[in-house]
Design a protein around this nucleic acid. Structure first.
Length: 203
DNA sequence: CGTTGGATCTTCT
DNA sequence: GAAGATCCAACGC
C-alpha cells in the first residue's frame, strides 16, 4: 500500500538521520496526464544550514533563491546550476532552520519509458543506468524544474513514499561532491548511498 | 581508462 | 563579472 512520508518525518532535527532514512524511499512525480513516474532514492547528501560552509544558507545567508529552505520541513527546494541543470532538495527541520537533503541519484521504478524519452537528446539515447544516476540527470528524468520550488511533499505534484528501512550495513557514507570551496566542511562524511547500487552517481 | 574543456545562465558580489 | 551542490564529448595514452 502507498504511504506518503508524514510531515513529522521531515520536521525532525537530525538531518543526518533523515538523509540516511531517505535511502530506499520512493520519490514520485506524476506526469500531467497522471502517469506515475518514480524512483528509489539511492544517494543523497545532507546540508546543515547556517553551520555548513557548503550550504547555500551558510552563516544565515538568506536570499530569494534559498528562502524556501528557511520554511518548514516537507517542502521541495529546486535550484538552477551551471547554466543547464536543476537540483532537487528536500527541506527538513522546522521553520528558520534551513537544513536540506540533496537527492543525488535514483533507481528508476515506474515510468521508465517516460524517463528515456526525457533524457534522450538530439537523436541520442541514454543507457538506462544513466537515466537518474546524478543530481542533474534525475531532475530531467523526473520532469522536475524551477516550477517545483516550494512544492509541498504532502501534496499531489511530488511526494516520497515510505519503504523498507535499510540496515546500517547497507549504507555507505563519504564526503560530498563538488564542494571543494567549503573549507573545513568539505570532508564531512555527509553523503550517503546504498552500497553496491549501480545507480549511484559515478565518482 | 583518465583528463580536459565546453555548454550555458542564474545568482550574488 | 565570476563562479557554481553537473554532465558529456573529445581527446590522449
Amino acid at each position: 500500500m502507498i504511504k506518503k512520508l508524514s510531515r513529522q518525518f521531515y520536521l525532525r532535527e537530525d538531518n543526518i538521520q533523515i538523509a540516511r532514512e531517505l535511502l530506499g524511499k520512493t520519490l514520485v512525480v506524476p506526469t500531467d496526464d497522471g502517469e506515475r513516474v518514480s524512483g528509489r532514492v539511492v544517494e543523497c547528501e545532507a546540508y546543515m544550514g547556517q553551520a555548513d560552509r557548503a550550504a547555500h544558507s551558510f552563516g544565515g545567508r538568506r536570499t530569494a533563491r534559498n528562502e524556501i529552505t528557511y520554511g518548514a520541513g516537507g517542502h521541495v527546494y529546486v535550484f538552477f546550476i551551471y547554466g543547464m541543470y536543476f537540483q532537487l532538495n528536500v527541506v527538513t527541520h522546522t521553520i528558520d532552520t534551513p537544513h536540506v537533503v540533496l537527492i543525488r541519484a535514483l533507481e528508476p521504478v515506474d515510468g521508465i519509458e517516460i524517463m528515456r524519452a526525457r533524457r534522450a537528446g538530439n537523436g541520442k539515447t541514454t543507457p538506462d543506468k544513466n537515466l537518474t544516476s546524478g543530481p542533474g540527470k534525475l531532475t530531467i528524468a523526473m520532469g522536475v524544474d524551477r516550477g517545483f520550488n516550494g512544492e509541498d511533499l504532502l501534496g499531489d505534484r511530488i511526494w516520497i513514499e515510505d519503504g523498507k528501512k535499510l540496515k546500517d550495513d547497507e549504507i555507505a557514507a563519504g564526503p560530498r561532491v563538488g564542494i571543494d570551496y567549503a573549507g573545513e566542511d568539505k570532508d564531512k562524511p555527509w553523503r550517503f548511498w546504498v552500497k553496491g547500487n549501480p545507480f549511484v552517481s559515478r565518482k
